[in-house]
């Protein structure tokens, strides 16, 4: 009797291990096949990698200016010859990210409630909202920007709307997921007091989800500053157009000067957002 049980256990276990091995082997085969196909389609070879990487480092080296201690001021002046112009473009870039993030957050905030299963009983509404958000999230901001440059003309407005729409999709989906984690307990208390739908949202949902919303929003703003820096590649404002120009024209030291300014700006914004995030989330007044 008991030895039967042991045998049964052993056979089951062996089956399980075999099944797991088969699964791993299958994954391995699929992975290798995907790898092989990708290498062919992606036109990759070790030779190209071996020649490409040194050339990349040579490229980076060429972008570095010659600075000497004796004439440091003059050298820096020559390196950053268009400092003010670039600063203005960087400022515009940040403004694009700011306005786009604000618009995207407003849209994503409103739609996130419609897209939450636990808040909207009508499946048509929440599925519809979900699909719309997914669509906005899937289309990259640069594609929106290509369209909008055609419709709204060259300039930052197209970039703002493009980034805003993509942000709406990303944040709306993330917000909706936070909303779906709200406990029924906090909703019931407000519903039972005779509150209307938007009051239930304001009291039963918002206080609970706001820290998460703020956190995601600030992270998204950081990402949007980067996006705004390249949206100019298609003529939609910011520093991107200038950056593309100097890269395509091989004006090496300008490339490093602009990139350096961009990196410092992005780092400062990341730092500020992180500080703000920690402060706001620890704070009582966020309600």
């Amino acid at each position: 009797m008991s030895s039967d049980a042991v045998r049964l256990f052993e056979t089951r276990r062996a089956e399980q291990i075999a099944a797991r091995r088969r699964q791993t082997a299958l994954f391995g085969v699929v992975f290798l096949a995907a790898f092989a196909v990708s290498v062919v389609v992606g036109e990759v070879s070790l030779e190209r990698l071996a020649t490409g990487l040194p050339r990349f480092f040579a490229y980076i080296e060429r972008t570095l200016p010659t600075l000497s201690l004796a004439t440091l001021g003059a050298d820096l002046g020559r390196w950053f010859w268009n400092f003010e112009g670039w600063l203005r473009l960087l400022f515009d870039t940040i403004l694009i990210a700011f306005v786009a993030t604000t618009l995207g957050v407003i849209g994503g905030f409103l739609l996130s409630f419609a897209a939450a299963k636990n808040l909207v009983a009508n499946p048509w509404i929440h599925h519809g909202a979900r699909r719309f958000l997914e669509l906005m999230r899937t289309v990259p901001e640069l594609v929106f920007a290509l369209f909008f440059v055609f419709a709204f003309g060259l300039g930052p407005m197209a970039g703002v709307l493009a980034i805003a729409l993509h942000t709406l999709g990303v944040l709306g989906k993330l917000f909706a997921e936070i909303n779906e984690n709200v406990t029924a307990k906090s909703l019931d208390g407000v519903v039972a007091a005779g509150a209307s739908f938007d009051q239930v949202i304001r009291f039963g949902v918002v206080p609970q989800v706001l820290p998460g919303f703020v956190s995601y929003t600030l992270l998204r703003f950081e990402i949007n500053v980067r996006s705004a820096s390249v949206i100019g590649f298609v003529g939609a404002g910011g520093i991107g157009q200038e950056l593309m120009f100097v890269i395509n024209q091989f004006i090496y030291t300008d490339i490093s000067a602009i990139l350096l300014m961009l990196i410092v700006t992005v780092a400062l914004i990341d730092l500020g957002c992180e500080k703000l995030r920690h402060r706001l989330i620890g704070q009582e007044s966020l309600k």
């Binding site: 389609v41 992606g42 036109e43 190209r48 490409g52 593309m244 091989f250």
Partner: peptide, 21 residues
């Protein structure tokens, strides 16, 4: 990380030429 992948792509096009590589 501070530089968007599109900028890197543009630079790599200068370095290794047009194409998926």
């Amino acid at each position: 990380r501070g530089v968007d992948s599109l900028v890197w792509a543009l630079i790599f096009v200068s370095v290794v030429g047009l194409g998926p590589f």
